[in-house]
Simulated scan of single mutants.
Amino acid sequence: MEYSFSFEAIGTGWRVDSASPLPAGQKAGLLRIAEDYDALYSRFRADSGITALAVSGGSLPLPGHGARLGRLLRTLHDLTGGGMSPLVGERLADQGYDAGYSFVPTVAPAPARAWDDLLEWTDDGVSLSAPALLDVGAAGKGQLVDLMLEYLLAAGHGHLIVDASGDMRRTGSGSITVALEHPYDPSSVIGTVALTEGALCASASNRRVWGDGLHHVLDARTGRCVDTVVATWVLAEDAMTADGLCTALFVADPVDLAGSFDFDFVLMYSDGRARYSAPLAGALFS
């Protein structure tokens, strides 16, 4: 596309490609959407809503899109038998992925606290019966991609790509070819995917590594880092769903998710094997 706008938000690089130019007001609007989202959900900010819940518990009102995020996270929590949970935030912090990026584990791994004992997520917001550190990173970046794309669609743009460092959503005619980065060698790829309309998201345990076997993808049932799956890619209608499914595939079989979601996937295991849905059979290099 002819026009691009690049910026930093929520700790990563973003790029918006469009067929028509983005006026200054729309660029500012994208930055405002990112800032508002970060101010709600970042567990790395002392002034965020999530941090306030971690200090005192209680309730945090959320905008309308918070209900969509909560429903997705609850569904994935249930489908994974609790393997995926926003309550994993405090376990990540315990293992060193904390607000100060200490990268020093302070306690032995332990299961995340139970959702039904502590957390209530309704259409109005989040309530905690006791202080707890939540983490919505399993699907939050994908939702922010969706919010930015929806904002630009409402402003009259029709041919767009919103790309948050590889988690992307596209609308418009034609297609683009996206490379699937090899998790053990960033200079090579394991295949390519054609993205028409919809979202492609990826997750890899090598993205945030700070010790022997320590990375950002935990199984909430054990509090331990997942060591069987090393990378996932998902094609879905929207980026929030694709992002959430990428995380869920680290702790659940695709069959367990397919009854509730329409998606295609590629999985790469720690022993080098790959698994993929039938429509992506030609996406991987032999």
Rank of each mutant, 00 (worst) to 15 (best):
P21L: 06
A258R: 13
T228S: 15
D38H: 13
P111D: 08
L119N: 03
M1G: 07
L53I: 00
T177G: 07
G29H: 08
F263M: 13
P186Q: 12
G13N: 07
V16H: 02
V178K: 09
W233S: 12
G198A: 11
V255P: 04
S175A: 15
V189K: 13
V136I: 14
L31H: 01
D78Y: 10
Y151H: 15
T122E: 08
V189Y: 09
S188K: 13
A179D: 06
V229G: 01
F265Y: 15
Y97F: 15
C225F: 02
A130Q: 13
A239I: 07
T228R: 11
G174N: 09
S4E: 14
D36N: 11
W115L: 02
P105F: 02
S59N: 03
L149W: 08
A194R: 15
Y97C: 01
D123P: 13
A24I: 14
D123M: 07
G81K: 06
G223N: 06
G11N: 03
T75F: 03
D116Y: 04
S277L: 03
D123N: 14
P21A: 13
R224Y: 05
L235M: 03
L160Y: 07
A67V: 06
D185S: 14
G137A: 14
G13Q: 08
A108C: 05
L214I: 09
L72G: 09
F263I: 13
L200R: 04
Q143R: 14
V230F: 00
R273W: 00
R91Q: 15
E181M: 07
P63N: 13
L31N: 11
T80Q: 12
S59K: 05
L249F: 03
D227W: 01
C201M: 03
N206W: 03
L180Q: 11
R207F: 05
M84G: 08
D94G: 06
P183Y: 04
M148W: 07
G96Q: 06
R170M: 15
D78T: 06
R221W: 15
G29E: 00
A108L: 02
D227R: 10
R224C: 10
L92T: 07
V226A: 12
T106M: 00
G96H: 01
L76K: 04
D117E: 15
A236S: 10
T177W: 14
H77T: 07
G137E: 05
A179C: 04
L149P: 02
V193C: 04
S188Y: 06
Y3F: 15
L180V: 11
A130D: 12
I161Y: 04
D219S: 09
V162C: 00
I176A: 05
V229I: 15
A252Q: 08
H182Q: 11
Y184W: 11
D98L: 00
D94V: 02
A39W: 11
A283C: 07
G172C: 00
A199F: 01
A258P: 05
F5P: 08
H159K: 12
